[in-house]
Computed example of a mutant assay.
Amino acid sequence: MNVPPKESPVAVDRLLPDRDAQDLLELVREIAAEEMAPKAAQTEADHEFPRDVFRLLGTSGLLGLPYPEEFGGGGLPYEIYLQALEEVAAAWMSVGVGLSVHVMSAYPLFAYGTDEQRRRWLPDMLGGGTLGAFALSEPQAGSDVAAMTTRATETADGWTLTGTKAWITHGGRADYYTLMARTSDDGAHGISCFLLPGDSPGLTAAPPERKMGLTGSVTAQVFLEDVGIEADRLIGAAGSGLTIALSALDSGRLGIAACATGLAQAALDTAVAYARERTRFGRRVIDHQGLSFLLADMEAAVVSARATYLDAARRRDRGMPFGQQASVAKLIATDTAMKVTTDAVQVLGGAGYTRDFPVERYMREAKVTQIFEGTNQIQRLVIGRALAAG
């Protein structure tokens, strides 16, 4: 009988700047170990959305870590926030992705909203009172964002929204949507950003997508049928929505890179624990060179992925350009997650292919990281264009 090792969050020996950062990471590990890891597998198997976990993260102050304290955030640099996010994802990937999406959904309001808009809405977002979604993609406008057709029509007292958004994390469950819609036919310059309440009349959601992984994370189409909103729900200037969205995605890609790294670390930890405990031909599995070399390559890949997202985060924290580095981090970390989780299944052999062990779930969860927040082909395009521009 296969007895799986107890799932637990990763305990990486991290280089942190101060005691406060260390205390935060210890708090996150404690929450992950006690409130998340024990229920992750069953909740994923039941396809349940763990809204209670997000409420806990909110009351613990973890939903607004990289935003200023004056608005209810944690006031932490991205370098620290991403490492906390990695810990969450290592314990429960669906929650890690949801946390990353929520943090990204608050970014346009924080970076482009007016002082009045920030004072009005940010505290609830960052304090955990509300859960956000980022509504950019459409059925025919995924990587080609400029092809979106969702329309916002100006009225005497605000705007009316009509259209369909697709692949929306927290679709139908979010308390608000940071949503991009077309306000003119001026191509990429005709898109604007709106902050849309989740209970707006005329806003509905399709049944959740039936996915191969991240089954605890709700992903759904969102339908807008003459949804009216007030004029002050426009974030930034009309026509600046694509710029806002791409800026948010730079930071969001770092979030996904951290999540993918945490997932890869969890798979590596499971594989190492298995290889230490099991014996074959009179020796521990890990003492066979073929397996030890495979595990060594997995370790090197995870460490490298972490280094790439931390490099990009440190650039962001210092006010340096980081878009190219964010694409590199997203590309490297998510390809790493796919390879390391696949190799973890191989290390466990037949046991790895069963649901008695978590690595088959990790492998299924890893695949989508190469797709969302911009496919890895798009990341290569971004990186290539940056190199061509010099």
Rank of each mutant, 00 (worst) to 15 (best):
R355H: 04
A206K: 06
C193Q: 06
I168D: 01
F281L: 13
Y107T: 15
E34P: 01
T162F: 01
A389K: 13
G239I: 01
S192W: 08
A333K: 03
P66N: 04
P358C: 06
E299Y: 10
L56K: 14
L254P: 03
S217L: 14
L268A: 05
A174T: 08
H170W: 10
R318C: 03
P17I: 06
P201M: 02
Y81G: 02
P9V: 11
G290Y: 01
I256Q: 07
N376G: 10
G290D: 15
A11T: 12
A37S: 12
S143Q: 12
F194P: 09
A206E: 15
L76M: 14
T308K: 10
G73W: 13
G171Y: 03
A388F: 07
A84R: 05
A181K: 05
E230D: 15
Q265W: 05
A205K: 03
G98H: 14
A89D: 06
A205G: 01
L16F: 04
I256A: 10
L295Y: 07
R361T: 14
P197D: 11
V3E: 09
G74Q: 08
M104T: 15
P108H: 14
A257F: 00
L196R: 09
E373G: 00
Q265G: 06
D343A: 13
D297K: 13
G252F: 08
T219K: 06
R210G: 00
L295I: 14
L25T: 12
T160E: 15
R233P: 10
A312S: 03
M212P: 06
L136C: 09
A206F: 00
P68L: 07
T204V: 04
G236R: 01
V340Y: 10
R19W: 02
G349W: 05
S217H: 07
L203M: 13
H102Y: 09
K165L: 04
P38S: 10
T114M: 01
P208K: 12
L381Y: 08
G290H: 02
D269R: 05
F281P: 01
D124K: 12
L242D: 00
V328H: 11
D13Y: 04
T375I: 01
S304R: 14
T178R: 02
L82D: 11
